[in-house]
Design a protein around this nucleic acid. Structure first.
Lengths: 334, 334
DNA sequence: CTGAAAGCGCTTACAG
DNA sequence: CTGAAAGCGCTTACAG
């Protein structure tokens, strides 16, 4: 079918070893044979077989990426960053959608192992003990993005969730709000749930506001959850003037619900989100939110992973800066 | 490092050929040896090396997917469908972000060839002659999704863009609108630009409305483009009561712009989008739009590709049904 | 039912 | 500077 290294060796009148040398820029051939080889390569439109190469090199130049949901706006942006950095370094990325399912995740880990990927990026979500064991057995580098773990050997790239939530709440307070509520994730979510709630409460406390009186509802990080939580909140605590939604989808849900209920944002209700997804700029008024540099996180995670693969040196975890993006959904109160 | 087939053969006291047979469910071994082999496999936690297998089988169980932008909501949903179908059939998917760049696309094609992927899905965008040639040289199955081409050997999976645009416009007319504008893609875009504009005009004509008087602006399929086009439209043709935006992002842009200008949607201006992205339900009022079954398109494209890979039989192109999703952005006019 | 051997398409000591 | 040969981890006729 396609030409192999043997074909070019024959056409160039040299051995396959020599062809391999010139193709890989290894020392040991004359300029003349180099030209002969390159001509043969061109004539046959030869392309090396990366599978054969991978078998001997024990490197596939491929990394696996596990997402709870590839199609979410959140994951897509991270994926974009990963893909970009990987491709620049000559790596391919195979995507895996775990659907937050343990069985499926384990299955993927097995497939990635069989396919001999050089490394794995695990995104947003808890790295279960079971996964960690499988990963250990694979004995390849792993890096976490938008999550972290208790395992010292696995570096992560994320934002400081506690501080980011703190800053969101402090921003609201600085704008004059006193009756503030939060719509977050599940309290038992140790990555994106609990730390943000704690950060929110800490900001309240630091500013002399009773942290336990502030309503904190669970919006499950999704739009529908944000809508439901907002509806309940507005019914139960109509005195609230501002809400911190710990995810942009939920924040948009709050805005939609407010609009449906005839409550003006930001005049009557201020909203600050979290993530800074692209859709934060697509609503009206545009959403004020605390930005995570998602694409950058993906890029950095991939860079760390590849560095680890190629140098064998351990990589440090990294906390990336967040930033509140002031847009149109927070008003100033006197 | 990891155990190989040799290790299990030795431990089980059989030849590697026999191990291979039991692992691949091929005929030719006794129940007793099967058990011995499986025990050895379990003890060594043996996992076959897919790279070695791929080298001899000439199959990698991997497909490549090319997107103009992996992180767009549009692409993500298609990717989700592809990934799902692929994983069910035991295939992995490597994602490539072409950024609509010719050089980059060619580079990816080369990488995918070197990595010996079994097939390729090319999404949304024109399949240039140059790409087609590269694909031919690879001699592997290709399927198009959300686009089509003039090449008879490449099946596609898409919606009928002309008809979908026609239906969007006809829906507006049925709701009593007479002064209708369109915000579409570039007129020279033969896939998603021109056909939708033609469908829009055809609907106008069929309903006795002068098709050439209707404003048609270019919003480049992006939010910002939708905003700009809407602003211009509202200034130049304030008599318009409804707009068909041939992409949800642009439709959301129209809604945002209208809101900013104090124009009520749908009371003063009706808007119908195209795609039915998740964000269509996340704005207020929720966006009426003509739905493309994106995930389903991805799923079907992957299914076709895999069928082609495994059976060698050609696959037919498929036009999937679209559907107008009535939500809150179109009012009825008398 | 089972094994020895060739071969997939490369890379890499080793020898000259 | 160059080639013959072994080997990466599998599968698959072929022979018994």
């Amino acid at each position: 079918m396609s030409a192999t290294i043997k074909d070019v060796a024959k056409l160039a009148g040299v051995s396959v070893a020599t062809v391999s040398r010139v193709l890989n820029d290894l020392p040991g051939y004359s300029e003349e044979t180099r030209i002969r080889v390159m001509n043969a390569v061109a004539e046959l439109r030869y392309q090396p077989n990366a599978i054969a190469r991978g078998l001997v090199n024990k490197r596939t130049q491929t990394i696996g990426v596990l997402f709870p949901s590839v199609s979410s706006a959140f994951s897509s942006e991270i994926l974009h960053g990963i893909e970009e950095a990987a491709q620049e370094q000559g790596y391919s990325v195979v995507v895996c959608n775990t659907a937050e399912d343990g069985k499926r995740t384990m299955k993927y880990l097995q497939v990635l192992r069989e396919k001999q990927v050089d490394g794995i990026i695990y995104s947003s979500g808890v790295l279960k003990e079971e996964y960690h064991q499988a990963l250990q057995a694979m004995a390849i580098p792993v890096v976490l993005v938008a999550t972290k773990s208790e395992y010292a050997d696995i570096p992560y790239v994320k934002v400081d969730d506690h501080q980011a939530a703190y800053d969101a709440c402090a921003y609201l307070i600085r704008r004059g709000h006193r009756r503030i509520a939060m719509i977050g994730g599940p309290a038992h979510d140790v990555i994106a749930g609990e730390p943000r709630i704690a950060g929110f409460r800490a900001a309240l406390a630091d500013h002399g506001l009773p942290p336990d009186e502030a309503p904190v509802l669970d919006g499950r990080f999704i739009f529908a959850g944000g809508c439901e939580a907002a509806e309940e909140l507005l019914r139960q605590a109509p005195e609230v003037t501002a809400v911190f939604a710990a995810g942009d989808e939920m924040a948009i849900g709050v805005i939609s619900t407010a609009a449906r209920l005839g409550i003006a944002v930001p005049a009557q209700l201020s909203v600050i989100g979290y993530d800074n997804l692209k859709l934060a700029e697509m609503c009206y008024p545009p959403l004020t939110t605390v930005a995570q540099p998602l694409a950058e996180m993906g890029r950095l995670a991939a860079a760390k992973l590849i560095a680890r693969i190629e140098t064998g040196q351990p990589e440090a975890s990294e906390i990336l800066p967040h930033q509140v993006m002031e847009r149109g959904t927070v008003s100033t109160r006197e």
